[in-house]
Design a protein around this nucleic acid. Sequence first.
DNA 1: TTGAAAGCGCTAACAA
DNA 2: TTGTTAGCGCTTTCAA
Lengths: 372, 372
Amino acid sequence: MDESGPSGRPEQDDASSHRAVRIQDVAKLADVSTATVSRALATPERVSPEARARVFEAIAKTGYVPNPAARSLRSQKTHMVLVVLPDLSNTFFSKILRGIEERLFEAGYGMIISDLDGTPEKEAHFAAFIAAGRVDGAILLNGHLFGQTRMGGGATDRTGIPLVALCEAIPSADIPQIEIDNRGAASRMTQHLASLGHRSIAYVSGPESNILERERFLGYQDGLKAAGLPFDPGLVLPGDYTIEAGVAAGQNLAARSTRPSAVFCTSDEMAIGLIRTLLSAGLRVPGDISVAGFDDIEFAAVAEPALTTIHQPRRELGQAAASVLIDLLQGRPSPKRIRLDTDLVLRDSVAPPQNMLKAPAKTTRTRAMKPT
Amino acid sequence: MDESGPSGRPEQDDASSHRAVRIQDVAKLADVSTATVSRALATPERVSPEARARVFEAIAKTGYVPNPAARSLRSQKTHMVLVVLPDLSNTFFSKILRGIEERLFEAGYGMIISDLDGTPEKEAHFAAFIAAGRVDGAILLNGHLFGQTRMGGGATDRTGIPLVALCEAIPSADIPQIEIDNRGAASRMTQHLASLGHRSIAYVSGPESNILERERFLGYQDGLKAAGLPFDPGLVLPGDYTIEAGVAAGQNLAARSTRPSAVFCTSDEMAIGLIRTLLSAGLRVPGDISVAGFDDIEFAAVAEPALTTIHQPRRELGQAAASVLIDLLQGRPSPKRIRLDTDLVLRDSVAPPQNMLKAPAKTTRTRAMKPT
DNA sequence: TTGAAAGCGCTAACAA
DNA sequence: TTGTTAGCGCTTTCAA
């Protein structure tokens, strides 16, 4: 079809170059069989140096790119990974995604993203995606995809593709988990607040059903206990990690006659929304109320006041998850669980309660926990 | 992984069969040919009701899911769309992405994401992605992918897959463009600032090479001219849409002895970083300096002070781009250019200059431009 | 080390 | 309306 031009460059595209270059074309040009071309690509060491050289030359000359559909049909591999996440438009996830993409890219995998905004039908759809064999593996950023669908029947190996859980551990499933110590971090923040003298520390939660949330809530209680403070259900405000939830919690708090002196929000978004509402209501932060967040998103550092929060290594989390999945995909052993460290980031939104003194805060980071 | 069983015949269909159900299995069960099964799926109206019923029953019974690799190999369609974007971890893009994903999902397309963090090699990689036929079409959110690589030679139809440019129009290429009127919006904001009495309006730019940036910069100049203000190059500060760039611009401004009374930042991130730095330097916003942003990201409304900015319909932009691409993919006619409206969102970060009076601002939206 | 040849599972051209 | 059949482009036995 496409004779290579006299120049040695790939053919000029006249009307002629309809057809993509196939392995046959390369084989013919290199004067070998298609099998040899295939081998030269997959296992170069099993092809004689001469043949290999000719093959690569022919590939360069023709601009041959293997057809992934054919390859995939034959080899049952797609070199694609599915990433399932609850909300694409959430800053928290997008940074993780980037970490994932980086690593997958390096390893030659493509990334298919599925954003299931809480829609059960979408879960089913992406389960079908997996079932159809469109991907070699998947990274799950939400705790319950396949929670019902797939794992429910205990049929972990029904579809049989490697899965990795990121952040939201899937409790029953025994798939590798990449996470932070949510409980420990929440406990640590709570104790930090207590150590400054706060006796009444409110908690703005994530969605109840969320595994992360449960861990953090336990951590909050741990922290209270460690500080010798009683747990007061009246100080627990419902939330869902969004700015709006923070605003709602702020309104709730602002309307109270007696208020906690500190609030621990389980996401920075909520903390920022909460602070905004408090300020609008004429309260001072941290003067009247200290507010702490969780995640350390980009905006935490430039919030007004700058947010004291827990730093999560989001990109690294993504990278770690991708690395584990790639190991699995390539048959290498890989850790069943990776727990990355968090940092307690001290900024300006938290201070000792009104009646106590405190020097103006500077951003400080404290290593939150040692590796285990 | 596992050896396929005695490969002559498929296993029993119900028990935990190793082997995936194929079209043959369905055909046999429904007592029709594979062609009929295929037709029943693709063009049900061309199959007799009885046959169709039996086919669907068999599909339900077996849990048949077509093998996309085989389908794709044969039909030369992948039902995949590539989305190329400059920075996945940027809030601005993630909301757009969601709009895209929604629409693609509805139409039965999957989304492959490529984040090229300015790395030229990645551009090449994804160009290869397209060349290999892994996707049926692509949405480009950055102005210059294939700017050199592909379009350079004027060979638009070299790879021949439908392309849509989103936000950053690719100047020379004649592919459909989905965008906002950047120039008009920037002009409008500039005039708004001028109308409040600001005579000295600084501008924090995006990356120079960026097409968006050029449009907005022109708009800024248009606005100045319309307001009868001179253009002062000393009031143009370099930026790149990031928080850090805003911080840098803030430091620059804070260090000056005479300062503009207003600053127009071409992204909310920069505006937030700038405000933060100004406040830290002891300046008041908008008391001493008014600051305006661009984009209206989620955090704009809860920034302190709340940000006056240009609202971009990000999700809708994504949806529009996906819709156009789907039209193209399915051979329907589609508009060559879609321009969505922006809004001027008035909040608290902008006020008349110090010597003038102004009532406390409330969030207000004004339609920025009429459709054309 | 190499080549011939048999499919991977599906769709579409052609015939009936 | 339906079935037969020939590939789509590749990898991978199996022999040589």
